[in-house]
């Protein structure tokens, strides 16, 4: 993939792949193009070259709307809940395209995130950061995605809550959903992931299994805090 915003390329050649049922994490320094790569997959960044393939078909340049219908889910880092809607309404919006499956999916999401059931009638804007993150992930799950893309789901959360979120991500994955994760907290992310990509200045720098990346001394120095 090559692309960026308004004529300036941020991605200069990035290759990413996620297999079904896999957790894949993208790490890299600030400005390496991690989030941009994820947005590019989801059709939010204009690609100048390259393609996005999903489930065997070319989906390059498709609108987010269509991608959700095909089974892709994306949770942005910020502003990821409808603040004035209740938790329940937020989740319902995730199932907008498939109102038939609403009840079944709602049950699944509430099993994964029991706290959301307690807070179902509360406006999402009143929840804590961690709970908001759960609402956002839950809303994406409501559309029954095959691939869930999370952009820094633990940004700004306390270590304890961060732990919970990672644990829930593993649970989502065990339900058979592939996960692509952009993370600053590289060590924790790699510890739950199967594979990892390291990006630098908009290019692939390293690709390896998560375990191998955790052991790589170079990676350890630059991204894992020694």
């Amino acid at each position: 993939m090559v692309g960026g915003y308004g004529g300036m390329d941020i991605l200069n050649g990035v290759d990413l792949a996620v297999e079904a049922n896999e957790i894949v994490v993208i790490i890299g320094a600030n400005g390496a193009g991690k989030s941009t790569a994820m947005k590019a997959i989801f059709g939010l960044v204009q690609l100048r070259a390259g393609s996005v393939r999903f489930d065997g078909q070319d989906v390059t340049g498709r609108l987010p709307n269509a991608l959700v219908g095909l089974g892709m889910g994306y949770v942005p880092q910020e502003r990821n809940v409808f603040r004035n809607l209740t938790v329940l309404e937020n989740l319902e919006m995730g199932a907008f395209l498939k109102p038939m499956t609403l009840a079944r999916m709602l049950e699944q999401v509430f099993t994964l995130f029991p706290v959301l059931k307690e807070k179902a009638r509360q406006p999402a804007g009143e929840l804590s950061g961690g709970q908001r993150q759960m609402v956002a992930v839950g809303r994406a799950l409501m559309a029954e995605p095959k691939l869930l893309m999370l952009d820094e789901p633990t940004a700004g959360l306390s270590p304890l809550v961060m732990e919970q979120i990672f644990e829930r991500i593993v649970a989502v994955n065990q339900a058979g959903i592939g996960i692509l994760l952009v993370e600053q907290n590289a060590r924790q992310a790699l510890s739950i992931a199967h594979r990892g990509y390291v990006l630098a200045t908009g290019r692939n720098r390293l690709t390896d299994t998560a375990a191998a990346l955790l052991d790589n001394p170079e990676i350890g120095q630059s991204f894992l805090g020694g």
Binding site: N65, V68, P76, F82, L85, E92, M93, L97, A143
Partner: peptide, 24 residues
């Protein structure tokens, strides 16, 4: 109604509505 809620969602955050799969 589903459409009414979607309308409130979109007036809350139109970009988020788009990426959540709402038929904007």
């Amino acid at each position: 109604s589903r459409m009414g809620k979607a309308m409130r969602a979109m007036s809350d955050d139109a970009d988020l509505a788009r990426i959540s799969g709402i038929d904007t």
